[in-house]
Simulated scan of single mutants.
Amino acid sequence: MSNQQFTGILAAVVTPFTADGSAIDTHGVKRQAEHIIGGGVHGLVPGGSTGEFGALTVSERKQTTELYVEAAAGRVPVVAGTGALSTADTVELSVHAEKAGADAVMIVPPFYDAPSFEELLAFYGDVSETIDIPIMYYNIPSATGVHLTPEQLAELGRKTRVTSYKDTGGDFAWFSAVKEQHAADITALNGWDTLTFAALASGAKAGVWGTASVIPRLCADLYEAVAVRGDLVSGRELWSKIFPICRFLESHNYACGIKTGVELVGVSAGPTRRPVLPLAPEHREELRTLLAAAGVETVTDQVAA
């Protein structure tokens, strides 16, 4: 697979749970995939922060990858989140994802004890030796403590199977430096919701976007307007509807916000796992109001257990 496959909007997807949160809801995965793909979104990214990967066992992470690959059925690419604290677990999950049919893997740097750049090169290098599909570097410094320079990120691209990176750092100047100065070594993908319009307008070819799990058609339409047609007037009109939703989601626990959103639009994915609590009723209604203002139909409350 070439870098070019990472085009369009790739939805960061939830991990649907049964009502008590104890197991993966297999039918729920199909509901999510049909909702998202049917809305025109260009790819699925299970097993990331939106998918609550830190609350899943290794076997559940493998199961989620398998279910989303099966649900996508070759219609759109699936990029499986496989990052873990140890190289061994990351390799195990990445090898499994390739065998399961994932088109690429997304790997967050080991978190809690931030590795040095030399350790990161070894970490991604070790994974690169075990798989033949591309790696998307998941840049989220607030969670990992890892702050790479644009030059280091480019070096990572040259020396490993990292072909792209999802930027969830929120520093648009840093993102632009990588995109403008190091495109030959690594492809920049936006991963910060409220910077989506700016990233697409500046020429980013793709984004990994949790909001696309809730309002896929609006997100796909934004990409078509801005990135494909270069129609900034239409893009701004769409963005005026989408931005308040993105702003809301960035102001709350993100996975919980997305799960609340998919429930409100009629494709419930069950609760988030503890310790994450449901949104307070007033915030839930605020999100409903924002969706309605964007022209999105919501359903009668069916609060997850």
Score class of each variant (00 low, 15 high):
116 S>V: 10
86 S>Y: 05
129 E>N: 10
60 E>K: 08
105 V>D: 02
75 R>P: 08
303 V>Y: 03
278 P>K: 09
54 G>K: 00
196 T>G: 11
290 L>N: 08
151 E>C: 12
58 V>W: 05
58 V>G: 10
234 S>A: 14
166 K>G: 00
217 R>Y: 04
141 P>L: 15
291 L>I: 14
65 T>C: 15
247 R>I: 03
192 W>R: 00
157 G>F: 02
133 I>E: 07
251 S>K: 13
206 A>W: 03
4 Q>E: 02
11 A>R: 00
117 F>Q: 13
170 G>F: 01
198 A>V: 03
38 G>I: 08
4 Q>R: 10
54 G>T: 00
186 I>N: 05
46 P>G: 06
19 A>E: 11
204 A>K: 07
57 T>Q: 04
45 V>P: 06
148 L>Q: 09
183 A>C: 05
78 V>M: 08
201 A>Y: 00
295 G>A: 14
126 D>M: 05
161 R>T: 12
270 G>W: 02
302 Q>D: 14
191 G>K: 01
273 R>S: 09
80 A>G: 02
295 G>W: 15
239 W>S: 09
211 T>W: 09
154 A>L: 06
131 I>K: 14
25 D>Q: 14
152 Q>D: 02
38 G>T: 05
203 G>E: 01
210 G>H: 04
87 T>F: 01
3 N>S: 12
212 A>R: 03
38 G>D: 09
293 A>F: 04
101 G>Y: 10
16 P>G: 09
257 G>Y: 05
4 Q>K: 01
230 G>H: 11
112 Y>G: 08
39 G>R: 06
80 A>T: 05
266 G>W: 04
30 K>I: 14
209 W>Q: 07
286 E>H: 08
283 H>C: 11
183 A>T: 00
8 G>R: 00
103 D>N: 13
225 A>S: 13
89 D>N: 12
22 S>I: 00
66 E>Q: 13
229 R>G: 13
106 M>L: 13
198 A>F: 05
292 A>E: 13
27 H>I: 15
253 N>S: 07
125 G>H: 14
67 L>C: 13
189 L>D: 01
119 E>N: 12
224 E>D: 10
168 T>M: 08
22 S>E: 10
57 T>P: 01
42 H>Y: 02
16 P>F: 10
278 P>T: 11
120 L>F: 12
170 G>M: 00
44 L>G: 04
69 V>G: 12
64 T>I: 15
213 S>I: 00
84 A>N: 01
115 P>E: 05
103 D>G: 09
233 V>E: 15
13 V>Y: 04
96 H>T: 07
287 L>A: 15
144 T>H: 12
255 A>Y: 12
93 L>N: 04
81 G>Q: 06
51 G>I: 04
71 A>Q: 07
98 E>S: 03
223 Y>D: 00
289 T>C: 14
44 L>T: 07
161 R>W: 10
217 R>K: 13
261 G>H: 05
134 P>H: 06
190 N>L: 07
278 P>I: 06
19 A>S: 13
124 Y>E: 11
121 L>H: 11
289 T>S: 14
74 G>K: 06
203 G>H: 09
139 N>R: 13
132 D>H: 15
153 L>P: 01
27 H>M: 15
185 D>F: 08
205 K>C: 02
7 T>K: 05
221 D>G: 06
87 T>W: 00
182 H>D: 03
235 G>K: 14
241 K>L: 10
199 A>V: 04
218 L>N: 00
34 E>W: 02
209 W>E: 04
